[in-house]
């Protein structure tokens, strides 16, 4: 809620400095020891270097993003441990969020790695790691669900819904009336 947010939002910019622009207005002499030569290198080498750096940075970032669910996983595991093994509001909530997060992450794998897409960057590795970690998270969620007894893995879960068997014979009677 910083002041002036509304003004900024309205579109008017009062002033700005463009640091990337190094060609204009050299009224001011360079500071001592500053060599302009290093900047005025060959354009092609400059752009190649720049691109290399960018792709390096991108792949590094991609790996970082791919590893991000790890932290999440650990946190989830801790929360699950905290929630205990009885069925109540919190344990169910945590379990379902533990299930939902990996699923939503898996659904949006492409989107997450979109910014790092590059011809030179190998994204398969990070993607696989990301998917694997999320699957790990999902497995953890399912394990928790099972630990809570919410998965129909026992005979009892199937039998309880079955109606009782019909009887072929009918018999009645008792002590005589009267």
């Amino acid at each position: 809620m910083e002041k002036g947010k509304g003004v900024m939002g309205s579109g008017g910019r009062r002033w700005g400095v463009d640091f990337s622009d190094n060609s204009t207005s050299r009224d001011i002499p360079d500071p001592p020891g500053f060599s302009r030569a290093s900047l005025d290198q060959d354009d092609s080498t400059l752009s190649r270097q720049k691109k290399d750096a960018e792709s390096n940075w991108k792949s590094q970032k991609a790996w970082e993003v791919a590893q991000a669910p790890m932290k999440n996983l650990l946190m989830m595991a801790f929360m699950m441990w905290m929630a205990g093994s009885t069925v109540h509001l919190f344990s169910i909530g945590i379990t379902f969020s533990a299930l939902w997060q990996p699923i939503s992450a898996l659904q949006s794998v492409g989107k997450i790695f979109e910014p790092y897409k590059d011809n030179k960057v190998e994204l398969l590795g990070p993607k696989l790691l990301f998917i694997a970690l999320n699957l790990g998270g999902l497995a953890l969620g399912i394990w928790k669900l099972n630990a809570l007894g919410l998965l129909p893995t026992h005979t009892s879960d199937w039998v309880s819904s079955l109606p009782p068997a019909q009887e072929v014979e009918f018999s009645a009677g008792g002590i005589n009336l009267g």
Binding site: H154, V159, S160, S161, L162, P164, A165, E167, E169
Partner: peptide, 19 residues
């Protein structure tokens, strides 16, 4: 239901006969 679920998720089947 015809099943009685025990603590270990084991099932005992009730003998539900009207006769």
């Amino acid at each position: 239901t015809q099943a009685k679920v025990m603590t270990d998720y084991d099932v005992m089947y009730k003998y539900i006969s009207k006769n």
